[in-house]
Design a protein around this nucleic acid. Sequence first.
RNA 1: GCGCCUGUAGCUCAGUUGGAUAGAGCACCCGCCUUCUAAGCGGGAUGUCCCGUGUUCGAAUCACGGCGGGCGCACCA
Length: 580
Amino acid sequence: MTLLQELESRLAAALTATLGEPATAAVTAAADLRFGDYQSNAAMVLAKQRKTNPRALAQEIIDHLDLTDLATADIAGPGFINFRILPSAYAARTASLIRDERLGVPATGAGKTVVIDFSAPNVAKPMHVGHIRGTIIGDSLARIARFLGFKVIADNHIGDWGTQFGMIIYGWNQFLDEAALTADPITELVRVYRKVTSMKEDPGVLDACKAELVKLQAGDPENLAIWQKCIDVSKAGLQKIYDRLDVRFDHWHGESFYNDRLAGVVEEFIEKGIARESNGAICVFSDGTKPKEDDPFLVHKEDGWTDNPAIIRKADGGYLYATSDLATIQFRIDEWKADHVWYVVGVPQQLHFRQLFDAAARWGKTGDFQHIQFGSILGDDRKLMRTRSGENVGLVEVLEEAVERAAKAIAEKNPELQGEEAVKISEIVGIGAVKFAELSQGRLTDYVFSWDRMLALQGDTAPYLQYSHVRIRSIFRKLDAPFDATTAEIHLKEPAEIHLARLLVRFGEVLPTILEDFRPNLLANYVLELARAFHSYFEACPVLKADEPIRSSRLALCELTSRTLKQGLYLLGIEVPERM
RNA sequence: GCGCCUGUAGCUCAGUUGGAUAGAGCACCCGCCUUCUAAGCGGGAUGUCCCGUGUUCGAAUCACGGCGGGCGCACCA
């Protein structure tokens, strides 16, 4: 049980005693340390309902409150109940955390399976900075869910099928430079693809592309072979980026994986009356579903008739995005037995997902489907970055620059680090900076891409966090004898060490809340606070020079901080170096 | 036209879901390295929370109406 839960449980007992009937109320971390460690507005809420004086009610609650060995409570302001945790209680808590592999984090996801669909780039198109967001947020959510006990299936639903292959195959046949393909397959594929897109105006070219696509979809062996080759080199290129980002997938079930299921899905939709023909296309309208009537996404206000159908088969018989996504849902629910399916995909696709989830529900595929949307990365013109416009900053380019800047900083700040070690640390620091810049931000806000913003190494950044870990490791390197933190007694006296303990204890409270709204930035905020607390502690409380038993106590706190920080950063996908 | 997201310090952003005197970082000023790594610590200045009305003990947060920015609305993904 976390400290917060412990307080809630004791408060519930007091409320029940006060009111003479079962009652519970929320406790939250105090907004300001002046008010204590935790607070509850239970008295104010209840007094409102009962039309009594909130402060008087708060006093009554406190009279019934048993906080033995845990905290003190007092009334403040309009009727807040403020809790101050006893240092001895913090000491007991931290001591037990040191012996806890899970660092106090409850397994809230145990027994549940979640499929997380993220990154999902199109093959044969370069990944630009716009792709980084979904990839990093998705990976972080996967790590967090896994640590919370979920069975996580990370699935990279790559765009490996569809109209763009007409152009790619046409380009492959017309313009491919075999030597260039061997040397740098991705670059060559991208060059070919861009060349063809630039020629789209030419109706002859367009028709030729369509013809290639039709041949591919009909199973033409030659085109299939080209397609397969494209997929292979693209995957290899993507894998390199993922390796560098330390992003892992359990599966790469791209769109092509579902090809042979699409016809069946459409048939079933028609048969069950969920989809019907309109202007030659097969569409899923949301008419006939009463509960959806006031859903602005799906229903036309004036006549109750939907004007935003999801098209699952084109008039020419071709299948679309929505079709393969439905087949994907079927697979994830039926084969993978998913309880939750989370789509980490940008805001612009929200209508698609509303339609998709609506269609899936009527199809009888039940589960918790979430479109975890994120804001857009804008160009200097404040417009959305597009894959098409080509001049966007490439993802690899950003990583290169980040690592280069980190290397420069290392050369300047710690010239002792040389050779391979310096290279390795530059990588960890540079990549970490990029990831943290993304994760520390609210998921929904749009922002204009800026090198300095994404690659900053000062202030609230990954290097600041990594540096706190480095300082801890430095203490342990200076230790003369092995230290066993699990048997150490914790003594808390200095404000800086109490504050550090306060935050360490909160790790298990913060983590589960992240998945309530899918906000990794809450974890980013937490680790920043923790690192800040550690830096202050480091300055204020000498460790190695302290006398026993304080020395052991402080060492143990360092050990726990190190582990919590490392775990927190791991969940954000950020590595920590031993020195920097 | 309909809908979604968004607007907070000079800049970039948080704000624990309705709580107390709205917080960080950058930039700026002052102080701290013969003591565990100064990528650090301590201190200082900075606000029409876009505007208006409403809901109530209490609003940056909720509702309604405006304004600005981004995006989506039938055979692309």
